[in-house]
């Protein structure tokens, strides 16, 4: 990447983000990538005067990540999206959709994880629909997603 990436630890995240907010940075978005069966990589992109700045957080799937939505309200939908797609839990979300922003209650897999996270809770009690990262099972490739249809 052309711009520098600052690695952060979960404990320092809120502090770093708050510092950026004071400096006048705008939250662009969060990008999430699965690294392996245990780790997920979360990139925080910020922008100021057309210059980008990134923070990299390597999170363990089993541990919740502090939510930055109390600092940047705009992070609300993005974090909920990651919660749906990757099963990573965020702590302190302003509005928590409980993993149902995109997915339905009966969805058991987190679609963007190749090393799929099985959710024991979801199967037993579908009302608590959050994908709690349990111990990662053997690599299970989810099925091929539906081909993209043309839409405006």
């Amino acid at each position: 990447m052309r711009e520098e990436i600052t690695p952060v630890r979960p404990a320092d995240l809120i502090g770093e983000v708050a510092k950026l907010k004071i400096q006048g940075y705008r939250l662009v978005t969060l990008s999430c990538t699965e690294i392996d069966a245990n780790c997920i990589d979360v990139l925080y992109h910020f922008d100021k005067d057309l210059g980008l700045k990134h923070l990299r957080l390597t999170a363990m799937k089993a541990e919740p990540v502090p939510s930055i939505s109390p600092v940047y309200f705009a992070a609300l939908l993005i974090e909920n999206e990651i919660q749906d797609f990757f099963g990573l839990k965020f702590q302190g979300l302003v509005v928590d959709f409980q993993g149902m922003l995109y997915l339905e209650e009966e969805a058991l897999k987190t679609p963007f994880c190749k090393f799929s996270i099985q959710t024991a809770e979801k199967t037993s009690a579908p009302s608590i629909a959050h994908a709690e990262p349990a111990e990662p099972p053997a690599a299970a490739m989810p099925g091929e997603p539906a081909p993209g249809e043309m839409d405006s």
Binding site: Y102, L103, G148
Partner: peptide
């Protein structure tokens, strides 16, 4: 006002796998 997404989610990002 509370938004709800996912009505036309098609999984295009995930298509990068195939």
């Amino acid at each position: 006002a509370i938004p709800n997404l996912g009505y036309v989610h098609r999984g295009l990002e995930r298509l990068a796998d195939v």
